[in-house]
Nucleic acid binder design. Structure first.
Lengths: 152, 152
DNA sequence: CTTGAAATTAAAGTTTACTTTAAGGTTAGG
DNA sequence: CCTAACCTTAAAGTAAACTTTAATTTCAAG
């Protein structure tokens, strides 16, 4: 599979795929005699995980550390299981982050919809934001809202 | 309230608050005789909403359009609520996909760990990857995974 | 054999979201 | 009164995540 095909299938631009390779997110891939990159189907899964993780707010740097080390094909059963389990843990991390984001958004929606039609925007803001603060943890103990601590 | 105090309370750098003002996310604020910015308590709430929305994946540009027109008063909350709800739906969809992927992975792990120790590693790996492809449904109807359409 | 689509590289450019710097004016404490 | 901490501005700098450009090379069709 050449880069153009992979690009079509994944929906990512070829430049982006090459960029991920330069950045070490995709392991060294095979080259044909002509120097063209030859991808396996596995690469598509990797790209998908990268995109998903990005959508959940992970930086490429974090993703690089989450992805299993792409040492080539000595795939023993144990290593395969270990890699998959690691992936499950990664997915759980993604889910946690998504849940937090979603909970925060829903709280904000609830508050806005609870505002009386003619009312001042921030009349009861204080109370609801306090709720938000109690439920999840968008603030630290000093009372500042934390800048999205990226979770490795 | 001067900028330093607001910065301490919100946890945002003064430069960042001034930046948001330049970008039109915070309305025109009062100035003292000395030219110092004088903030009201409302501004803190606005800053918190900005941070919240950022964590949910909104760009500053999108946020600017969601926030009340700071010329005068009423914030048409319908637009804001609609956008936020749309975002929640997106997040839910993302989470469903993650769940499916995770469930698939766990099933695959269980299968591998149940295989008798005599098996061929590569045969196994092949089957595992096939499972992964079939079980998770990470693609849209064209077969691409969608690149997180940011919603205004 | 020629032509156009697709591949390669290195390097430079873009956007977003800030921060830092430089050069100053203001204010509170000792 | 002096000094340090805080405020002001415009402008330049930075980091992340890509994309675009330019200058080739290669492949596939007619």
């Amino acid at each position: 599979m050449k880069i153009g095909e992979l690009a079509r299938e994944s929906g990512l631009a070829p430049s982006r795929i090459r960029f991920y390779e330069r950045e070490g997110l995709i392991g060294s891939i095979d080259r044909g005699l002509n120097g063209y990159r030859q991808y396996s189907r596995e690469t598509r899964q990797v790209l998908e995980i990268i995109v998903m993780a990005q959508q959940a707010g992970f930086s490429l740097d974090e993703i690089r550390n989450l992805l299993p080390p792409h040492g080539k094909g000595d795939w023993s059963k144990d290593k395969l299981v270990a890699a998959l389990k690691k992936k499950v843990i990664e997915l759980a991390a993604l889910q946690r982050r998504l849940s937090e984001t979603q909970a925060g958004l829903e709280a904000v929606i609830a508050r806005i919809e609870a505002t009386p039609p003619g009312g001042d925007c921030f009349e009861n803001a204080e109370a609801v934001l306090a709720d938000l603060r109690d439920q999840s943890k968008p603030v630290d103990e000093i009372g500042q809202f934390v800048p999205a601590k990226t979770v490795a």
